[in-house]
């Protein structure tokens, strides 16, 4: 189907964006990469009156190292993240996850900011942001706000972004020398939204993980941290029995929402498998 009619504006600075958001309110949609928005418009699932194209705003671009943080502009594309040497060095989780995001033609246009703002619980970037304890940098006409990922994703497609606010960048703590991260997901077809996925990050010392964060995609209404499982493995040498305890803790603390072909029990089972495999891999790599 064809999209319903809407107007289109292409501001050249953030300063031009805020009055538009003020003027149109809910009737405006921000157009970042458009890879989700335009598909939903083509299905006539919503009828905004105006699209605000963010592509000409240079403030939303750029990959820079800012002290202890790697700052990735909201309009940086998935492909750019995938290919960036800077990202590979300072946030190696991201290039591990990037190939799982849809397909090349989508990754060439889809953006980090768009993905974070849409907050699909099955998407890779929100999960990675949460796993890396990243920060969403949001701006509005009244100023800038920094929101920890832990406080950002609140419900299905719902974030703590306020009306009139726009994501300008995400910041990721720069990986230390003993940084550990891993990513895996189970999708029936390459590039599909996964049934369940797991991003893990923390500090590694020999066979022990510290400050570990384990975040699942595809389970619930938001990316979900497995806090109890994190607590089990945190600062303890990894053993098979510790890993089993972590899996048990995971199943105790989280519950899943089923989809068309995988019910909640299947999703939780698969989440446990992913966790076990990720930790076993880590344990075995240290023992090797």
């Amino acid at each position: 189907m064809k999209a319903p009619a809407f107007d289109y504006v292409k501001p050249h600075s953030l300063a031009e964006v805020f009055p538009l958001l003020q003027q149109y309110g809910d009737e405006a949609r921000l157009l970042a990469g458009g890879q989700t928005l335009l598909a939903t418009l083509n299905m006539r699932l919503s009828e905004p009156s105006v699209l605000v194209d963010l592509s000409a705003i240079t403030e939303l671009r750029g990959l820079t190292l800012a002290g202890a943080m790697l700052r990735i502009g909201a309009m940086v594309t998935h492909s750019e993240i995938e290919a960036s040497a800077l990202v590979a060095q300072h946030a190696p989780l991201l290039p591990l996850a990037a190939p799982h995001i849809a397909h090349r033609a989508i990754r060439n246009l889809g953006t980090l900011g768009g993905s974070i703002a849409y907050a699909d619980p099955a998407a890779e970037w929100p999960t990675c942001l949460l796993a890396l304890d990243g920060v969403v940098v949001a701006k509005s006409a009244t100023g800038e706000r920094r929101i920890r990922a832990d406080d950002f994703f609140v419900d299905l497609y719902t974030t703590t972004l306020l009306p009139g606010e726009i994501i300008v960048a995400c910041e990721f703590p720069v990986a230390s020398a003993n940084h550990w991260c891993d990513f895996d997901e189970l999708a029936r077809r390459h590039g599909d939204y996964a049934i369940v996925g797991l991003a893990g990050a923390g500090q590694r010392s020999e066979n022990t993980l510290a400050q570990v964060r384990l975040v699942f995609l595809g389970l619930g209404a938001t990316p979900l941290r497995a806090l109890q499982a994190e607590g089990v493995v945190k600062s303890q040498p990894l053993t098979a029995s510790l890993i089993n305890q972590a899996v048990a803790a995971l199943k105790n603390e989280l519950s899943a929402v089923g989809d068309l072909t995988s019910d909640a029990a299947t999703k939780m089972h698969l989440a446990g498998v992913l966790l076990k495999r990720m930790l076993m891999k880590q344990m075995q790599s240290k023992n090797a």
């Binding site: 029990a265 299947t266 698969l270």
Partner: peptide, 13 residues
């Protein structure tokens, strides 16, 4: 034959 059907056959879910 979906992953879930196989897991059910194996008694894992």
């Amino acid at each position: 034959i979906t992953p879930q059907k196989i897991l059910r056959a194996l008694g894992k879910v």
